[in-house]
Nucleic acid binder design. Sequence first.
DNA 1: TCACAAATTTATAACGTTATAAATTTGGCA
DNA 2: TGCCAAATTTATAACGTTATAAATTTGTGA
Lengths: 344, 344
Amino acid sequence: MKLGTGTVTKRPTLKTVAEKTGLAVTTVSKALNGAPEIAAKTRLLVENAAREIGYVPDRAAQRLRTGKTNVISLVLSPHDEILGFSNSLTLGLSRALRGTNYNLLVTPSFEESTEIKTIEKIVRNKMADGIIFSRTEPFDERVRFLIENGFPFVCHGRTELSSKHSFVDYDNEEFARLAVSQLAAKGRKRLFAVMPDRKFTFYGHLKYGFTSAAADVGVSYAVPEEVNLDSAPDEIYACIAKHIEEGRSPDGYVCAGEVAAMTIMACLSDHNMMVGRDVDIVAKQTSRVFDHIRPRVDTIIENIAEAGALMGEMLLDDISNPNAIREGFVQRPEKEFPDLNPAG
Amino acid sequence: MKLGTGTVTKRPTLKTVAEKTGLAVTTVSKALNGAPEIAAKTRLLVENAAREIGYVPDRAAQRLRTGKTNVISLVLSPHDEILGFSNSLTLGLSRALRGTNYNLLVTPSFEESTEIKTIEKIVRNKMADGIIFSRTEPFDERVRFLIENGFPFVCHGRTELSSKHSFVDYDNEEFARLAVSQLAAKGRKRLFAVMPDRKFTFYGHLKYGFTSAAADVGVSYAVPEEVNLDSAPDEIYACIAKHIEEGRSPDGYVCAGEVAAMTIMACLSDHNMMVGRDVDIVAKQTSRVFDHIRPRVDTIIENIAEAGALMGEMLLDDISNPNAIREGFVQRPEKEFPDLNPAG
DNA sequence: TCACAAATTTATAACGTTATAAATTTGGCA
DNA sequence: TGCCAAATTTATAACGTTATAAATTTGTGA
């Protein structure tokens, strides 16, 4: 479809359609927006004329008039793992937005501390109709801010705040239990878990899952204090290496992050520890990297794209029903990726 | 910063600032936009007042009035590898946009065929001031369309079109040469290269690089016809497996895609072929996954985040200087990642 | 001090849309 | 046929900004 080769024909507006049909601008607007008072034959007339001359409403004008941006903003944390996480989230979200007339604005924060500023800016400047973000904390300031301002949002992870709000979370407690059972089933006794930063809500869920499962199946589990899932790979590597070299190596690892899990595997390999023989790992898998990594490790899947799609749908719902009661959804751990994910 | 707890105070507008300062709306507008005719003391007065009451211009109104969207659109292909590519691109782009008042709209196409439609839509609906996309073909229809419509864009990859246009490409020819030399230096003689789809510009560059380097250093190289870098990992795996099982295994692999390279490694491992002993691989590295994969393989880096940042800067330039002569930039292969990349 | 140019400020209109209220047309029924 | 309510269409104003042109103020030199 060429748009006037060189000759810049101005975009058709409501006025253009009005002139073509001999109707008033208002009528055309109403006809295209499905106002009930418009006669059926008028609506048809307008729709045909609009299609014929390729009329598309001007978003800026609509936005100025109605105050709606038709934009959803995905606020990324600097730590959203370059591997998989934000990518899958974006993809899932886009899938939910497909077919709607919402667009996706991606706003990375470059420092953790600026994330709340980013959100404040989006709200203050009305840059979007709703916000999506992740890495929720129990008393998350972003959540508080958004609730206080009545701004629609869906976050990835629960909070412990009293106000209900939309969220999509993952059952990390169950993840922890499954992981511990799997390792126990392989005869592993001394486990080692790389945990997220304590400040995140899912730290608690994991911890509770680990503790109870470890007690249930009679294994021990330790957490290295000096690193967490967001630590630089080098630091995680060094930490694991130190334990191995000091003879304090566990016989099973649980890791709720892909990069950290890969780092552990690299470290084990470099120390001639064989996964499956000397040690076992259960990793949380959020992308498909582990499909291509050897030795194979046990993984438990967290489907981020699905979470993203769900968050998108929930957010659209929240935007159109500002007064509805907010609900959360908790994803269950899965064994297999569904096949609708793009390869990778 | 709380925005009126519950009490919805309307956003300040130019009018608000005008009333506060006793000046006309026009004057305020000009003062804030740096118009030269505004007296210094007036400008200061306005700036202070604006800051004080937290005035932020309404984008929708600006956009309606000026026709500028202040949005850059990143159009993603369904094949942009879930691992790294689009993520790094997004990050780099965001970095370039940081500090400007441009926002990043991410628009994934879900089918390859709809990508041109996506772009047409962005242009027709003036959804952005400029477009970024990748996977350029020699006679790319997207490039043709955008040039024809005088719409600013920067693509990742060159074309063979006669009109000059902005692009950022990677020296894949050099990549191929380096890869072949590295393998030859290790004594490898029969190489195997998984190539991109023939339709892409960089197919030609790689091919030329391979052919000339192979001739120079006296090795052979073959390309499996049935798969390319975008093939499903399963297919690549099956293809490599078949060659190994039929005794036609090469002793060196070159792979310009991360996922494909990992797949090859997995296949080799599953067939008890040891990288470094039975076979060697040189992979193109666009994320940091290979840092964490064992056995270590030789990689040659293509810094996508840097490319993204560069593309962003070029696009902003192109937007502000519509009549400037367009130029391209070709990235050189690198040995190391710079350290400004977020961990991962 | 006055005239006039330069400097600065201002009023008006417009971008394209939709909410509101007013105007017109239609159709039913006496 | 004529009246009235219902159905449908229309005019007007407004969202917040900036381009344009007009108006005002300031400063300079005679």
